[in-house]
Simulated scan of single mutants.
Amino acid sequence: MLLAIDAGNTNVVFALVEDGVIRARWRIATDPRRTGDEYAVWLSQLLELEGLERADVTAVIIGTVVPRALHNLEVLASKYFGVEPLVAGQGGADYGIVLDVADPATVGADRALNALAAHALYEGDLIVIDFGTATTFDVVDYSGAYQGGIIAPGINLSLDALVSAAAKLPRIAIEAPDSESVIGRTTQDMMHIGIYWGYVAMMEGLVERMKAEIGRPVSVIATGGLATLFDQHTEIFDAIEGDLTIQGLAMLYARSLSGP
């Protein structure tokens, strides 16, 4: 069974993948200081709850945008699962896709993995929107080449900045407003409108501009935990793939088995 690890800036997601199917997934807050031993204690308990043992994990692949977290995840794989992990974008886990940007080495693993998986799942030109610490908009052309994109502050990051910089503004939950009115009557309503509808307007505006620049029919694929929240009030998404990055890791591992 494959253990796919997606280490992002906010959370590390661990997923068990068997025959291309995700059997279980868990997440923990990203902390580069967390040791391989600490990960092992935590994961061992979760595996037990699923009726599994560490020996059931026969391969590990890691994708990370947090370089300082990589070493401890590699220790986890080698010390506690007895396998040499593959690292997305390195060696036998080279992405195998064209990164058609000015500096390919700077493309985050999550964005490359999303591009790989989205192209495998959908035809034609694509825009992949990933709701994470940052919200990213990535263009994948009909051949599967990554063409670049946009990095915008994530909605939680935007809210944190607003609340920390304005002493009298309260902490609010990220949720859709109760109505479609964009004129708030209370401070909380005004904040909900600004954060939620402001974000919807930003997404719709950027996608419209990107489609115009691409100049061909484009499908928009959304991933990340907040995709379903926005799907209630916008028509820009053609599909939602909540596990796109994990799917990319599983595809990359399968490709590594077949060789170059």
Rank of each mutant, 00 (worst) to 15 (best):
Met203Lys: 01
Met210Leu: 15
Glu208Trp: 02
Thr245Asn: 05
Trp42Leu: 12
Asp189Gln: 15
Phe14Val: 12
Ile62Cys: 05
Ile5Pro: 12
Glu84Gly: 13
Leu99Ala: 05
Leu73Gly: 07
Ile97Arg: 08
Phe131Ala: 09
Ala118Cys: 08
Tyr39Cys: 01
Thr35Gly: 05
Gly89Met: 10
Gly248Val: 06
Leu73Lys: 05
Ile97Gln: 03
Pro104Met: 09
His233Tyr: 12
Ala40Thr: 02
Met190Phe: 07
Gly108Ser: 02
Arg209Trp: 06
Asp110Val: 10
Val128His: 10
Ala176Val: 10
Asp103His: 12
Thr136Gly: 01
Pro170Lys: 04
Gly51Arg: 00
Thr133Tyr: 09
Lys79Gln: 14
Pro217Thr: 06
Gly82Tyr: 10
Leu244Ser: 11
Arg27Phe: 15
Gly259Trp: 03
Ile28Asp: 07
Ala120Arg: 15
Arg34Gln: 11
Ile150Lys: 06
Ile28Lys: 04
Leu126Cys: 10
Leu126Lys: 11
Ser44Met: 13
Thr136Trp: 00
Leu159Val: 11
Leu16Tyr: 03
Leu70Asn: 08
Leu249Trp: 09
Asp238Ser: 06
Leu249Glu: 02
Val218Cys: 01
Gly124Asp: 02
Leu226Tyr: 14
Ser256Glu: 05
Arg54Leu: 04
Arg25His: 11
Gly20Leu: 08
Ile236Gln: 07
Leu162His: 11
Lys168Cys: 01
Val200Pro: 03
